[in-house]
Design a protein around this nucleic acid. Structure first.
Length: 480
RNA sequence: GCUCCGGUGGUGUAGUCCGGUCAAGCAUAGGGGCCUUUCGAGCCCCAGACCCGGGUUCAAAUCCCGGCCGGAGCACCA
């Protein structure tokens, strides 16, 4: 896989990562991570690290979920390290009459390309080209003033084949090499040389590069380098949300999004922070397959995978959003509830919540969201605690009467004691631009959670603990 | 407009290179049942597809031709 370190990896990168990884492991090949860093204007050191980190997490999960090991890349290559070698190949192209230095301004080149016209530099003698090339390297040209161009066919039906530029001057420090270079290879040239040199046998790229296959084959042929398979796969988009950095950058700069790990973002770190298990991503993209068709995925499909992974292992907690007090009258002295950590896994244990009545009354919180469906006189079950009959519903309080039954064919509500509870702040992502904060109370035991834990809020959904401050637990809502 | 690439149940795919084992596999969503003191999940069952038209062949999802629809590229960016 060969990402450009020009941003934080997103959901869009996962297919490009997993397709070649799975392919390599299945066929006992090697999986290479190569940084395509030949345009220093957009690349930054922090992105190399983000890519290493995020891809590492996904591959580790792939090892667990798919049993393909080792779940990491076999070798890391930094393309820019080989720029000196590429200069040597460039010189060879010039000497063989396969490349020339062109000093036409960009608009002229564009016009010539469109119309299939050759410029006067095309037929310069080799000596002249060599001289100009040395000038390029020595700083004799400013950015945009000169380009080394492949001599192919200016009337080729595939326009990317019309004398493509292969080296250009960029006057901008490189994140790794600083100002060591001022002439950088372009995409087609650098990957052709790198793939051939590093022993790549099967290069997977996304579909938009298809027209470039011909250019790269031409470069390999002219240089006498080894040919290899070039395989394309379709692009992934997420229902409506663009995956482009251009779109998110201003939202982050303006503070609408909190950063590249904002849980509303389709960046890998955003998704993980939201509480998606990396194995869910792996499973999802594995099922998506390597096809060449472009697909629009929906987050709900990823959520379904996540639920499948989390459901069997995540502890349950009662969370009461928008709480309202309920007074239970005629209650026995003691009411106890044994709350299972996981209803179908007794080995995960139970928590006992004990409520003592005062003057025959017990107080709990229920969610006012549940209130709308309640009728006076209705019997309902407080989960694992007791049955009650609703007496009155007022704006700030509900009263009910204890019923000594354990019927479960009535509405079941969850609750927390008023005497002891954990304040909970839940962040619900709505769109890239918006979110909702839901406040409420959780079971006392929730105070013991730690950051990063994933829980299931009973009858509410899955959430991940994002932070804990002064006893208040901040959760990020993952999905239902 | 030009170049290239796709089109398999509601959705996402496998199969297409090397025609038969594909009256088409898998997943997800849908319907029904079981289980369950949350919601999921789990288990069982049901239903559902080869873009269209020609051709080649004993035989076509698969090969050929024509059409229709969709996507990508057409930056001295990757």
């Amino acid at each position: 896989m060969a990402p450009e370190p020009n941003g934080y990896p997103t959901l869009g990168h996962v297919k490009g990562l997993l397709v070649p990884f799975i392919y390599a492991r299945l066929y006992k090949g090697k999986f290479l991570l190569r940084f395509e860093d030949t345009n220093p204007r957009v690349e930054k050191l922090e992105y190399y690290d983000a890519i290493r980190n995020e891809l590492g997490i996904i591959l580790e999960a792939a090892e667990k979920e798919l049993g393909l090991s080792p779940g990491k890349w076999d070798e890391e290559i930094i393309e820019s390290n080989d720029i000196p070698k590429m200069y040597v190949y460039a010189k060879k192209l010039i000497e063989d009459g396969n490349a020339y230095v062109c000093t036409c301004p960009a608009p002229v080149v564009r016009r010539n390309r469109n119309m299939g016209v050759e410029c006067e530099h095309r037929d310069q003698p080799v000596d002249k080209n060599l001289e100009l090339w040395e000038m390029m390297l020595d700083g004799g040209f400013k950015e945009g003033e000169a380009h080394l161009r492949l001599k192919t066919d200016m009337r080729h039906p595939n326009r990317t084949m019309r004398d493509p530029g292969i080296f250009r001057v960029i006057e901008h420090p490189h994140p790794i090499h600083g100002d060591r270079f001022r002439v950088y290879p372009t995409y087609d040239f650098s990957i052709s040389v790198e793939d051939a040199l590093t022993g790549v046998t099967h290069a997977h790229r996304s579909k938009e590069f298809e027209p470039h296959v011909e250019v790269q084959r031409t470069i390999l042929r002219m240089l006498g380098l080894r040919q290899y398979e070039m395989i394309q796969f379709g692009r992934v988009t997420v229902e409506g949300i663009p995956l482009s950095k251009r779109y998110f950058r201003p939202l982050i700069a303006s503070g609408i999004l909190s950063g590249w790990d904002d849980p509303r973002l389709p960046t890998i770190r955003g998704i993980l922070r939201r509480g998606i298990d990396p194995r869910a991503l792996v499973r999802f993209f594995y099922d998506l397959g390597p096809s060449k068709a472009d697909v629009t995925i929906s987050m709900s499909a990823i959520f379904a995978e996540n639920r499948r992974i989390l459901d069997p292992v995540s502890p349950r907690f009662m969370f009461v959003p928008n709480p309202i007090k309920m007074v239970i009258m005629e209650a026995p002295k003691k009411l106890e509830a044994d709350i299972p950590v996981h209803p179908s896994k007794p080995e995960m244990g139970v928590r006992r919540i004990l409520l003592e009545s005062k003057d025959g009354e017990v107080e709990i919180y229920i969610s006012s969201d549940d209130l709308k469906q309640l009728k006076e006189g209705e019997e309902l079950r407080l989960w694992r605690l007791a049955n009650v009959r609703v007496r009155s519903i007022m704006a700030d309080e509900v009263t009910a009467k204890y019923v000594p039954s354990t019927r479960t064919d009535v509405k079941i509500l969850h609750w927390v004691p008023t005497s002891k509870y954990t304040p909970v702040k839940l962040f619900r992502p709505l769109s890239v631009y918006s979110y909702e904060i839901v406040g409420g109370y959780g079971e006392p035991e929730m105070a013991k959670l730690s950051v990063g834990e994933k829980v299931q809020l009973v009858r509410y959904g899955f959430a991940r603990v994002d932070s804990i401050q002064d006893g208040t637990v901040s959760l990020i809502f993952s999905h239902e």
